Simulated assay, not measured.
Amino acid sequence: MIPAVLQFPDLSPTLFSIEIGSFTFALRWYALAYIAGILIAWRMAVAAVRAPRLWPGESPPMNDRQIEDMLTWIILGVILGGRLGFVLFYQPEYYLSHPAEILKVWQGGMAFHGGLIGVIVAAWLYTRRQGIPQLSAADLIAYTVPPGLLLGRLSNFVNAELWGRASDLPWAVVFPGPRAQECPGVKGLCARHPSQLYEAGLEGLLLGLLLIVLVWRRDALKAPGLVCGVFFTGYGAARFFVEFFRQPDPQFVSDGNPLGLAWQVGGYGLTQGQALSLPMIAVGLFLALRARRRARTA
């Protein structure tokens, strides 16, 4: 038995449920996190475009109505991209054998990197049709994302999902469920890193505060691409780091691969999350450095 660990608190993934005959409506914390994240992002974006001093030439790239219209596109991009990303990046063989399961979003299975690709595609299509400066629009979107990440990771913790690797640290948590409580080489209950909280703190709180300072104190929106570049780099680095403590998806774990490495060369390897984060870091550094260089030249 591992001493000095924390038991998972008595939390329900459902905020409330209503039964009407044979029909049951349940509002889950995860769904509420999506809703709240979208509403917060919308208000943050509106506040930013209503402050002309933040933008190049004191000319915001969008108005309130365009933000609302683009939000509809982005919601579709998040849902479609997140689901297809999970299918392609994490369980392609299963879903190729069970294609009808792809549409069952309510059964879980969303990938952030897939959702990010969906948002990029949706925003690119909308801004191209509207003639909106795309780098400035990307900065605006990136600035508003961290609160949703914070709430999403907190709801992952409430749902007791996406937990971390086995640990004997004082803040390690014994999560409910037999798969979470049984670890190879560990006798008795298995305590794990609360990696959802690590991600909430790094991807949501810390990165969000950094972007707020850059936007409102450092005039970062006047260098198109800078805020987006910092977000890509910050999220990619945070996710890469947390993957050392996060339990990989079961399809990647085996007796010969206990760390769940998806990519291995010469005895070294990366988890799937780390492999998907490296391009984000590279693109983010490119965007941020190019934005700084152009700003200095201007």
Score class of each variant (00 low, 15 high):
Glu58Lys: 03
Glu58Asn: 10
Glu58Phe: 01
Glu58Gln: 02
Glu58Gly: 03
Ser59Met: 03
Pro60Arg: 08
Pro60Asn: 10
Pro61Phe: 12
Pro61Thr: 05
Met62Thr: 03
Met62Leu: 14
Asn63Tyr: 14
Asn63Leu: 13
Asp64Asn: 15
Asp64Leu: 10
Arg65Lys: 15
Gln66Leu: 13
Gln66Ala: 08
Ile67Ser: 13
Glu68His: 14
Glu68Gln: 14
Glu68Leu: 15
Glu68Tyr: 15
Asp69Pro: 00
Asp69Glu: 14
Asp69Ile: 06
Met70Gln: 11
Met70Ala: 15
Met70Glu: 09
Leu71Lys: 06
Leu71His: 10
Leu71Gly: 15
Trp73Val: 00
Trp73Pro: 01
Ile74Glu: 09
Ile75Leu: 12
Ile75Gly: 08
Ile75Lys: 11
Gly77Asp: 08
Gly77Leu: 05
Gly77Val: 06
Val78Arg: 07
Leu80Gly: 02
Gly81Ala: 09
Gly81Thr: 14
Gly81Glu: 15
Gly82Val: 02
Gly82Cys: 04
Leu84Arg: 11
Leu84Asn: 05
Leu84Gln: 08
Gly85Trp: 04
Gly85Met: 02
Gly85Glu: 00
Gly85Leu: 03
Phe86Arg: 06
Phe86Asn: 10
Val87Leu: 06
Val87Asn: 06
Leu88Asn: 06
Leu88Ser: 10
Leu88Gln: 05
Phe89Leu: 11
Phe89His: 13
Phe89Asn: 12
Tyr90Asn: 07
Tyr90His: 05
Gln91Phe: 05
Gln91His: 12
Gln91Asp: 12
Pro92Thr: 14
Pro92Asp: 11
Pro92Ser: 10
Pro92Trp: 08
Pro92Phe: 07
Glu93Tyr: 10
Tyr94Phe: 12
Tyr94Pro: 00
Tyr94Gln: 02
Tyr95Cys: 04
Tyr95Val: 00
Tyr95Phe: 14
Leu96Gln: 04
Leu96His: 03
Ser97Pro: 01
Ser97Tyr: 09
His98Thr: 09
His98Tyr: 13
Pro99Tyr: 11
Pro99Phe: 14
Glu101Asn: 07
Glu101His: 10
Ile102Glu: 01
Ile102Tyr: 09
Leu103Glu: 01
Leu103His: 09
Leu103Tyr: 12
Leu103Ser: 08
Leu103Gln: 04
Leu103Thr: 05
Val105Ile: 04
Val105Gly: 00
Trp106Thr: 03
Trp106Phe: 00
Gly108Met: 07
Gly109Val: 02
